[in-house]
Nucleic acid binder design. Sequence first.
DNA 1: GGTTTATGAAACCAATTGGTTTCGCTTTTG
DNA 2: CAAAAGCGAAACCAATTGGTTTCATAAACC
Lengths: 110, 110
Amino acid sequence: MSAVQKHDVFQAIADPTRREILKLLSEKELPISEITSHFPMSRTAVAKHLQILSEAELVCGRKVGREKRFRLHPGPLSELKEWLSYYEQFWTNKLSILTHVVESQPESGD
Amino acid sequence: MSAVQKHDVFQAIADPTRREILKLLSEKELPISEITSHFPMSRTAVAKHLQILSEAELVCGRKVGREKRFRLHPGPLSELKEWLSYYEQFWTNKLSILTHVVESQPESGD
DNA sequence: GGTTTATGAAACCAATTGGTTTCGCTTTTG
DNA sequence: CAAAAGCGAAACCAATTGGTTTCATAAACC
């Protein structure tokens, strides 16, 4: 398979298992078998999650001896943060929400 | 079906169409047919996306005459923001990343 | 009242997802 | 060298996803 980015960050973090994996890797670099020991599923399943996270470039793996160690690569989360920042005006600033609501009351005064 | 929250925020925003819908609704309240006109898919498909967004409580709809108008309800995005904030230490603070990397070099004498 | 507009609900479908098991290869270790 | 550990790849599977079409209902309009 080529390095086509089949999965993006939004898809990658949609799965709770993958979010847990990210959290594990945020503490330290870990090999697949180690990661697997934290989940009630097979190594193959975990490896697939890791591949999806790799495609989104949220983790990167390197081979050390017979094991492959993964580490967190949080950079792409900035895309998420940027996306979020657009919506912050609608909920951190209550005034904006109010304006927003008021503006959307065309003929509801039945 | 009861009102069990089948879809969470992470799943809801995983789909690009749903993210576009959110953006549309951030500008103003819109009925389903209006939203549909922005996408190359059927009204039914859009309605399903709206239901998923509703389950995640990212939008809420109210009936006005024969149409159902949806509006953005950005509150649940705070969950996303919280989740993100945990990882910010790993990428906004380059020093942390460095520490993180250095700590994970047990026998990698490549 | 009948037609159009807006929607809801259901049946259906192909592709994707998230999991499994099996097999083979490489590296470490006794 | 042989066995075990760690992994990759492939075949397979059920459930979910993202879309469709069809049909029925409610409201608006002439």
